[in-house]
């Protein structure tokens, strides 16, 4: 299916690959922020996941081990943030920024021997029957495991947050920490777990860049993807499905504008290049005009049971 010289099948499938790292990191951060914690260290956890995932994938020659180790590494790094902010009550913004710097430095150090090495690539999983549908099949049902995983994860998070007891408790902790505490919920413990979840998904997102999207290890290769993930959470008004929408919208327009440039469409390059940001701003304005968009009530507020 070719429209204006662009093969839609290739475009949509490229869009999903391009959006997956940010989507994974953002869905994790959405859960963290839902619990009332602002972790600005997403970039640091992503790049750590990218390097650890790459190292383990290369050494085991099995990409999936790389992703598992990336999740563990991201979670471990976030434990540092959790201990500092939840027990030692350090400032969340400063600690998060620190985490990003630690991640960038640490990954550059341990990744040195792995520069210029080839990684095993993820194989595509063609979903039976569905992938045989013309156009839609190769577009959406012919991806690697992590792309499917990211969508399933969004669905799971959306379901858990809105439909289950765990989700209700998580939201209570994030909306009003004193009330949640008074009801007997372990605010700090719940937040600790949410932070680790966010670390794990950020790690997987980072590993997707180094193992699938590029694929190679280069120092600093996330190049700001963590910050886009953070912005995306606000863009999505802390709603899981909107995170998916935002990631695909942003990733989609980015890929689309590259393709439009490649075929030499007569639209000024300046407009094409700023289009992802323009569309984001327009949607944000739309949401703030019509939508319900408040941040969790206790976001970034420190909590101690004695208070």
């Amino acid at each position: 299916m070719v429209i204006f010289g662009i093969d839609l099948v290739l475009l949509i499938s490229a869009l999903m690959i391009s959006a997956t790292p940010v989507l994974l990191a953002a869905i994790g951060e959405a859960v963290v922020e839902k619990s009332g914690v602002l972790n600005l260290g997403v970039e640091g956890m992503m790049i750590t996941g990218a390097v650890i995932g790459f190292i383990f994938a290369v050494n085991t020659q099995t990409p999936i081990y790389g992703f598992i180790c990336a999740a563990i590494a991201g979670a471990l790094l976030s434990v540092m943030f959790a201990v500092l902010t939840q027990y030692i009550m350090s400032n969340q913004v400063a600690t998060g920024l620190g985490l990003t710097m630690v991640g960038l430095g640490l990954s550059a150090l341990i990744g040195k021997p792995y520069e210029g090495i080839k990684s095993p690539t993820l194989s595509k999983i063609e979903i039976p029957i569905l992938s045989d549908i013309p156009v839609l099949g190769p577009m959406i049902f012919s991806h690697d495991a992590i792309v499917y995983f990211s969508v399933i994860l969004v669905a799971t998070v959306a379901f858990v947050i809105s439909k289950t007891r765990i989700g209700l408790v998580l939201r209570a902790v994030g909306e009003n920490q004193e009330a949640a505490h008074a009801l007997g919920y372990k605010v700090v413990r719940i937040r600790f777990l949410a932070i680790m979840f966010g670390g794990a998904t950020a790690g997987i997102g980072g590993a997707y860049i180094s193992l699938a999207r590029v694929p190679q290890w280069t120092e600093g290769m996330t190049a700001g993807a963590g910050w886009i993930a953070l912005a995306l959470v606000v863009f999505a008004s802390w709603k899981p499905w909107r995170v998916l929408l935002g990631a695909y919208l942003f990733g989609g327009i980015t890929v689309l504008q590259l393709n439009l440039q490649a075929i030499g469409v007569a639209i000024p390059v300046e407009i094409l290049s700023m289009s992802p940001y323009l569309v984001t701003i327009v949607v944000l304005v739309g949401i703030s005009l019509f939508g319900h968009h408040t941040a969790p009530g206790s976001l970034a507020r420190p909590f101690h049971a004695s208070q």
């Binding site: 999207r213 590029v214 600093g220 190049a223 980015t254 590259l258 490649a262």
Partner: peptide, 22 residues
């Protein structure tokens, strides 16, 4: 393709893939 950055491996890879797709 102009990508307006000197260093962004993911974007550089996307641009290369878009050109190869074309």
């Amino acid at each position: 393709i102009w990508i307006y950055t000197w260093f962004d491996p993911a974007k550089e890879a996307d641009a290369a893939k878009a050109l190869i797709d074309q």
